[in-house]
């Protein structure tokens, strides 16, 4: 169980998550400092370690729209943040799977900042459910693209590609 650290609306662009002016910074070890940097309050909280690793960002539709910059995903994994959104923009979703960002597609999600969220991983139908413990409500999730499951299971695209190279499936 973990808290919702940040609640956002629809169409949150990569320019909001990781502004273009910090794109010269590329390494996943260095990108987290600029996560949501234009939201001074939240960025300060992150840097002051006031946001517990494992906390959730809850967003509306089309989270991560815009640029293909992977920094927008790696800056969140760096803080151990997880994202629940009504849906995700294509490139952001792929990038997040590739770099191992924990994400959940939950079209009906209702949550406010401070709510306690639990992900019920195994349900009879196999799909995880999102439980808002504070509000006492459960929400269905949409599975991530099946085609990407092998990459998720491998822990990201780097280990997955490495495995392919080693197995000679190149």
């Amino acid at each position: 169980m973990a808290k919702v650290a940040l609640k956002l609306g629809d169409d949150i662009s990569t320019d909001i998550i990781y502004p273009g002016r910090y794109m010269a910074t590329v390494l996943p070890t260095e990108t987290p400092q600029y996560a949501f940097v234009d939201d001074a309050e939240f960025n300060k909280k992150l840097k002051a370690k006031q946001v517990e690793p494992g906390s959730f960002i809850v967003a509306g539709k089309n989270f991560g729209c815009g640029s293909s910059r992977e920094q927008a995903a790696s800056c969140l994994t760096g803080w151990g943040l997880k994202v629940i959104a009504k849906n995700f923009a294509r490139i952001f979703l792929q990038n997040s799977i590739n770099v191992g960002l924990y994400m959940v597609i939950c079209p009906a999600i209702e949550a406010d900042e401070g709510d306690e969220i639990e992900i019920i991983a195994s349900t009879p139908l196999g799909n995880p459910k999102v439980k808002n413990v504070t509000k006492g409500k459960e929400f269905d999730t949409v599975p991530l693209p099946k085609a990407r499951q092998a990459i998720i299971d491998a822990g990201g695209l780097i280990p997955y590609t490495r495995k392919l190279i080693l197995s000679g499936r190149k």
């Binding site: 590329v26 293909s68 910059r69 992977e70 995903a73 490139i91 792929q94 990038n95 590739n98 770099v99 693209p145 085609a147 990407r148 092998a150 990459i151 990201g156 695209l157 780097i158 997955y160 590609t161 392919l164 190279i165 190149k170």
Partner: peptide
């Protein structure tokens, strides 16, 4: 595509999945 996806393309010459 993102940078990690491209790294995989540089290695394999194809886009996975």
């Amino acid at each position: 595509i993102g940078a990690t996806e491209m790294a995989s393309v540089w290695a394999l010459g194809k886009v996975l999945n």
